[in-house]
Design a protein around this nucleic acid. Structure first.
Length: 926
RNA sequence: GCGAGGGUCGCCAAGCCAGGUUAACGGCGCAGGGCUUAGGACCCUGUCUCAAGGAGUUCAUGGGUUCGAAUCCCAUCUCUCGCACCA
C-alpha cells in the first residue's frame, strides 16, 4: 500500500494547485491553521481530513475548489520551549527528543524558536501530504514573514482608524525580575491561580485609614470588628496622598498597580489591637481585634470581620470570647440562605467541630459557604437600601458605591501565593497602563455581528446560540503583547499584535499568498492592500506595477468570500467570533464569511488527547502503521465532525479490512458479464445510495455519507449476490455499480479510489472525475418492494425453522386475499387510524365478512405502523405476491432448504391461511 | 458558579427538532453454522428475557402530557467544552 500511495502522491503533485477558472464556480474552504510547536497527532488528523473530504467532494461536483494551508507562528510558547531546551529541561527534552522524535542534532538547534516552528511546519506539510490532503501548497506561508506583517499592518490601519483599538489599563500576571507579563506557559508553579479583585473598604483610624480588604463588600452591614495580626509589623504609608495602614507586602503590590506609596513609619500589630476604627457608613466604633489567620500577604493585611457569615471571623471571635474577652460582640445576620440558620458561619463551624482558627479545613468550609451565599443568598433587613437584593446584585451595587463615592480602590491579588515564573522569581499582579484593546464591547459593532450572524450558515446548527452568546459576552480584548513572535503595532512599535488578534482575516491573504511574495515587502503599503482587497485607489499610482495589482485584485474577488471555515469548538468563543468582527469592520457586505463548521474534540482510548501528558498517538505513526486511507476512513467513520471522537488502535484494523473488501469486490467485478433479473434492483438501490450520500456530504455529515457509500452498497451487493441464479458470480450491471462506488468513496479513501479508477480502465484522476448522479429513471419502486417482500418472508421462514422442533421438509406460503388488500388500502389512507373499523364497515362487501373484516382492520393498523410510510403507499397500490413468490420459488427453496409451495389463502384449506396479511403471507412449515 | 452541548440494548453510534417507520439503522466485538487440508478472508444466522413468525420489559433517574413517548413538558443526577490576553 505504501508504494501505491507514493505513486499516487506523485500523480497529485500540483494537481490541487487551484487558480481562478473562467467557467467553473468557486468553492473556497479553509481551516484554522496550526501552531507548529510539536508533532501532529491523530486528533489534528481529523481537523484536516474533514475539510479535505469536503474539498474533494465539491471538486468532483465540478467546483473550482480552493483549500489552502498556512502556519500560525505568532506568540510566545515557542520562546519558552526554546529557553527550556537551552536549559536542557528534562521534561521538554523528553517530549521533543522522545515523543516527537526530533533528531539530537536538530534538537540542539531548537534554542532558536524560529528553527522550531520551521521544523514542525515542514513536518506538518510532509504528514499532510502523506495523508493525501488536497491542499494548494503554493499558498503556504507563516505569520511572521514580512509580507504577512505588512498585511496585518494594513488590517489594523483600518481597525485603528475606526477607533476600535483603544488604550487602557489591564491587570496581568507579571514577573518583576524578567520585567515582563507571564502567561501560563511561562509559569513553573501556580498556573491555576486566578486574579482576584478585592475592594479596599477604608475605616478612619486616627489620622489614618485602615483599608480592610474584602471580596464581599456587601457584608459591610454585618461588620462587628476588624482583624489585625499581632505578629505583623504594619506600615504607615502615604498612598495616593492619603495616610493608610497596610502590610509591607500590600505596599509593594500597590506600587505595581499604579498607586504611589511612600512609607512614613511602622506600627506593630499589637499596638493598634484593642483600639477602634470608625465604620465608614454608620460612623460607630469598630474595635480592632487580634487574629492569627490574617495574612499580611493577602490583600491589605487587614480584614473586616463578619462573624455571622465568615467562618474565619466566627471562629476567631469564638476563640477570644472563650477567653472571656469581647463578650459584648454579637454576630449580625445579613444574608438569608436556604438550609442555614440566621448565622450560617456558626452552623458550618460547629457542625464540623472545628477546634480553632488554624484548622486546615477552614479554607474549604469558607469556600462552601461563600458559594452557597453567592448563588442562593438574599440580603435581609439589616442591609438598608440593599435589603431584598440577591448577594450577586448587592455585591455589584455596593462595590460601585464604594469605588465611586467612598474612595475605595479595587486591589488585584493572586488566589495563590506560589505563583512562580520560569526564572524562579515570584509573579505578581501588575497593571499595565498602556495596553491596547480591541473594543469588542462596542454595542454598534456587536449589533452588526448579530445581524451578520443571521446570514452565516452554521454546522451543526446548535452552535448558533453559542455564537450569539459569545458576541454579547465579549468585551475589550487586550490585543498586544510585549514578548513573542509577531508583527509590531505600527503606531506603537514596542508592542506586538497578540496571536488571536493577528489571525482574523488571513483567509483573504490566502487568495494572493502565492503571488504577493514576488513583490518586495517594503512596497506593500496599506494603500496597496486597499487596492487589492477593497478596490480603493488607482492601480497606476501605487508603488507596485498595475498589472500585478489587477491580477491580485481579480484573484481575490474570484475566491472571496470564503464558503466555509472549519475549526474545533474550543475556538468558537474567541477566534471564530473575532473573525466575524474583523471581517465586518474591514470588508464590504458581499465579502463576509458564508459558513462555518465546528468540530468536536479528540480522545485517545477514551482519554483526552494531550501532548503535554503524553497521551497522544502521532499521526505519522498511524499513517505508517495503517495507511493513509485507513486513517482517513476511520476518522471519518467514527463520528460526525461535530461529535467528539475516540481513537482506538484495535478498531482501526477493522477499517483496513473494509478497504480491502472494497478493493477485492471492485476487482472481482471487473470481468463480470451477462445479466440477471436482480440487476434492476441493484441499479435502483444504487440511485438511492448516491442520492443519500450526496445529500449527507452537502451538509457535512461525512459519517452518514460513508455509511451510505460503504455499508449501504456492501449490503446491497450481498443481497444481489444471494439473488443471482446458481452458478453466476456477477453480471455486467456490476460495472455501473463499481464505477459509481469508486467515485463515492474517492473523497474518503482517495488513494485506493485513485488506484482502482485506473485499474478499472478509467482515464485521468478520480479526484477530478465527475461525482455520480442519481438517475430517477433507473429507480424502480415495484422491484424494490418485491425484493423487500422476499427478504422479509425469507427472514420469517428462517426464524420459524430455527424455532421449530421437528425436521421440516416443506413450506407453504399463503398469500393474502384481495379483500385484505382493500382493508389495507382503507387503513393506509385513514388520517386517524382509530376510525378505521367504521370505515371498513362502510364497505358492503367487507361488512359481509363480519368479524373477520374487523379483526383484519385492527391487524392492519399494527402492520402499517410497522412499515416505512413510503412502502405503505406502494403496498396499498397493490402487490402481486403470488407471482413474486412464484418467480422466486427456486431462490426460497435454495435458501431455506425446503420444498416451497405458494397458494392463495382463500383457496387453502389450512387454517393458518387465515393469518395471511398483505405483505405478510401465512407460513406453514411441515 | 455562569454559558453551550451530551447521557440509547458489550463498545462506537443512528433516531429526538416535525410523537405511531422502533426491541430501536449501521459498524465493531462476540457466538453458532456454511465454505475449507488448516488459518485468514468471505457468506448466512444470532447477540435484553421468554417464544411458530409472537409476547414481556427497555433508550441516565423520577414524575407528567397523550389512544400511543427514546422522541414533548417538569425536576434530579452525571459527563464534555468554553469562561479571556492564551494557542
Amino acid at each position: 500500500m505504501s508504494e501505491v500511495e507514493q505513486e499516487i502522491r506523485s500523480a497529485w503533485t500540483l494537481a490541487f494547485a487551484s487558480n481562478p477558472s473562467d467557467d467553473k464556480e468557486k468553492f473556497y474552504i479553509n481551516v484554522a491553521f496550526p501552531y507548529p510547536s510539536g508533532a501532529m497527532h491523530v486528533g489534528h488528523g481529523r481537523t484536516y481530513i474533514v475539510p479535505d473530504v469536503v474539498a474533494r467532494f465539491w471538486r468532483m461536483q465540478g467546483k473550482q475548489v480552493l483549500f489552502p494551508m498556512a502556519f500560525h507562528v505568532t506568540g510566545a510558547p515557542v520562546l519558552g520551549i526554546a529557553k527550556r531546551i537551552a536549559k536542557m529541561d528534562e521534561m521538554t527534552m523528553k517530549l521533543y527528543g522522545g515523543l516527537y522524535r526530533v533528531p539530537q542534532e536538530t534538537l540542539a538547534s531548537f534554542t532558536d524558536p524560529i528553527v522550531i516552528v520551521n521544523y514542525f511546519a515542514d513536518e506538518y506539510e510532509r504528514v499532510m501530504k502523506q495523508l493525501g490532503l488536497s491542499i494548494d501548497w503554493r499558498r503556504r506561508f507563516t505569520t511572521i514573514i514580512p509580507h504577512y506583517s505588512k498585511f496585518i499592518e494594513w488590517q489594523y490601519s483600518h481597525i485603528y482608524s475606526q477607533g476600535k483599538v483603544q488604550k487602557g489599563e489591564y491587570p496581568v500576571r507579571y514577573c518583576p525580575v524578567c520585567d515582563q507579563p507571564v502567561g501560563d506557559h511561562d509559569l513553573l508553579e501556580g498556573d491555576s491561580a486566578e486574579v482576584m479583585h478585592f475592594v479596599f473598604v477604608k475605616y478612619p483610624f486616627g489620622g489614618y485609614f485602615i483599608p480592610a480588604a474584602t471580596l464581599r463588600p456587601e457584608t459591610i452591614f454585618g461588620v462587628t470588628n476588624l482583624w489585625a495580626n499581632p505578629e505583623v509589623i504594619y506600615l504607615e504609608a502615604e498612598v495616593d496622598g492619603e495616610k493608610w495602614i497596610i502590610s509591607r507586602e500590600a505596599a509593594d503590590k500597590l506600587r505595581m498597580q499604579k498607586h504611589t506609596v511612600a512609607e512614613i513609619g511602622t506600627i506593630s500589630g499589637t499596638e493598634f489591637v484593642g483600639k477602634a476604627a470608625q465604620h465608614p457608613i454608620t460612623g460607630v466604633d469598630v474595635p480592632i481585634l487580634p487574629a492569627s489567620f490574617v495574612d499580611a500577604d493577602v490583600g491589605s493585611g487587614l480584614v473586616m470581620s463578619v462573624p455571622a457569615h465568615a467562618p474565619f471571623d466566627y471562629i476567631a471571635l469564638r476563640d477570644l470570647q472563650q477567653q472571656g474577652k469581647y463578650t459584648d460582640i454579637v454576630p449580625i445576620p445579613l444574608v438569608i440562605v436556604p438550609n442555614f440558620s440566621t448565622i450560617p458561619a456558626q452552623d458550618i463551624v460547629e457542625k464540623n467541630r472545628i477546634p480553632h482558627q488554624d484548622d486546615p479545613r477552614m479554607d474549604e468550609l469558607t469556600q462552601e459557604l461563600y458559594t452557597a451565599e453567592f448563588s442562593k443568598g438574599k440580603l435581609n433587613d439589616n442591609c438598608g437600601v440593599h435589603a431584598g437584593k440577591s448577594v450577586r446584585q448587592a455585591r455589584e451595587d455596593v462595590t460601585k458605591e464604594f469605588v465611586e463615592t467612598r474612595g475605595s480602590i479595587i486591589f488585584h491579588d493572586m488566589s495563590e501565593k506560589r505563583v512562580v515564573c520560569r526564572c524562579g522569581s515570584r509573579a505578581y499582579v501588575r497593571i499595565l497602563d498602556d495596553q491596547w484593546f480591541l473594543n469588542y464591547a462596542d454595542p454598534e459593532w456587536k449589533m452588526q455581528i448579530h445581524e451578520q450572524l443571521q446570514r452565516v450558515e452554521l454546522f451543526p446548527p446548535e452552535v448558533r446560540v453559542e455564537f450569539e452568546r459569545t458576541v454579547d459576552w465579549l468585551r475589550e480584548w487586550p490585543c498586544t503583547r510585549r514578548v513573542g513572535l509577531g508583527t509590531h503595532v505600527p503606531w506603537d512599535p514596542k508592542w506586538l499584535f497578540e496571536p488571536l488578534s493577528d489571525s482574523t482575516v488571513y483567509m483573504s491573504y490566502y487568495t494572493i499568498a502565492h503571488k504577493i511574495t514576488t513583490i518586495a515587502a517594503e512596497k506593500l503599503t496599506p494603500a496597496v492592500f486597499d487596492y487589492i482587497f477593497l478596490g480603493i485607489g488607482d492601480a497606476n499610482a501605487l508603488p507596485v506595477d498595475a498589472t500585478t495589482l489587477k491580477e491580485l485584485r481579480s484573484e481575490f474577488l474570484y475566491w472571496y468570500p470564503y464558503d466555509f471555515r472549519f475549526s474545533a469548538k474550543d475556538l468558537l468563543s474567541n477566534h471564530l467570533t473575532f473573525q466575524l468582527f474583523h471581517h465586518k469592520a474591514i470588508f464590504p457586505d458581499g465579502l463576509q464569511p458564508k459558513g462555518m463548521v465546528v468540530f468536536g474534540m479528540a480522545l485517545l482510548n477514551g482519554m483526552k488527547m494531550s501532548s503535554s501528558k503524553g497521551n497522544v498517538f502521532l499521526l505519522e505513526d498511524a499513517v505508517n502503521e495503517f495507511g493513509a486511507d485507513t486513517v482517513r476512513m476511520f476518522l471519518v467513520g467514527s463520528a460526525e465532525p461535530w461529535q467528539d471522537f475516540d481513537w482506538r488502535n484495535e478498531l482501526v484494523l477493522s477499517v483496513r479490512k473494509q478497504i480491502e473488501r472494497v478493493w477485492q469486490m471492485v476487482l472481482d467485478a471487473a470481468d463480470a458479464i451477462g445479466a440477471a433479473p436482480i440487476d434492476a434492483w441493484l441499479i435502483s438501490r444504487l440511485q438511492h445510495r448516491i442520492e443519500a450520500a450526496t445529500k449527507a456530504l452537502r451538509t457535512f455529515q461525512i459519517r452518514q455519507a460513508l455509511q451510505e457509500s460503504y455499508n449501504g452498497i456492501v449490503s446491497d451487493l450481498a443481497w444481489y449476490r444471494r439473488r443471482l441464479p446458481e452458478g453466476l458470480n456477477g453480471t455486467a450491471a456490476l460495472h455501473a455499480v463499481t464505477s459509481a462506488w469508486i467515485r463515492l468513496m474517492a473523497p474518503i479513501i482517495p488513494y485506493t479510489a485513485e488506484k482502482l479508477w485506473s485499474e478499472t480502465g478509467h482515464e485521468g484522476l478520480v479526484s477530478f472525475a465527475s461525482w455520480p448522479a442519481a438517475d430517477p429513471a433507473l429507480v424502480s419502486e415495484a422491484v424494490e418492494v418485491s425484493e423487500e417482500l422476499l427478504r422479509r418472508t425469507l427472514e420469517d421462514i428462517l426464524s420459524i425453522l430455527k424455532l421449530v422442533q421437528f425436521g421440516a421438509k416443506k413450506c407453504t406460503l399463503f398469500v393474502a386475499p384481495e379483500w385484505k388488500y382493500k382493508v389495507f388500502g382503507i387503513t393506509a389512507a385513514a388520517e386517524d387510524k382509530r376510525s378505521v373499523v367504521p370505515m371498513v364497515m362502510a364497505d358492503a362487501a367487507l361488512r359481509a365478512k363480519g368479524k373477520e373484516a374487523t379483526d383484519a382492520a385492527v391487524q392492519m393498523v399494527r402492520l402499517i405502523h410497522s412499515l416505512p410510510p413510503e412502502q405503505v403507499v406502494l403496498i396499498a397500490a397493490g402487490v402481486d405476491e403470488l407471482s413474486i413468490f412464484s418467480a422466486a420459488k427456486e431462490f426460497l427453496e435454495k435458501e431455506s432448504g425446503l420444498t416451497v409451495e405458494i397458494a392463495a389463502a382463500d383457496a387453502g384449506a389450512h387454517p393458518k391461511g387465515r393469518m395471511a396479511l398483505p405483505f405478510k403471507p401465512a407460513i406453514v412449515v411441515e
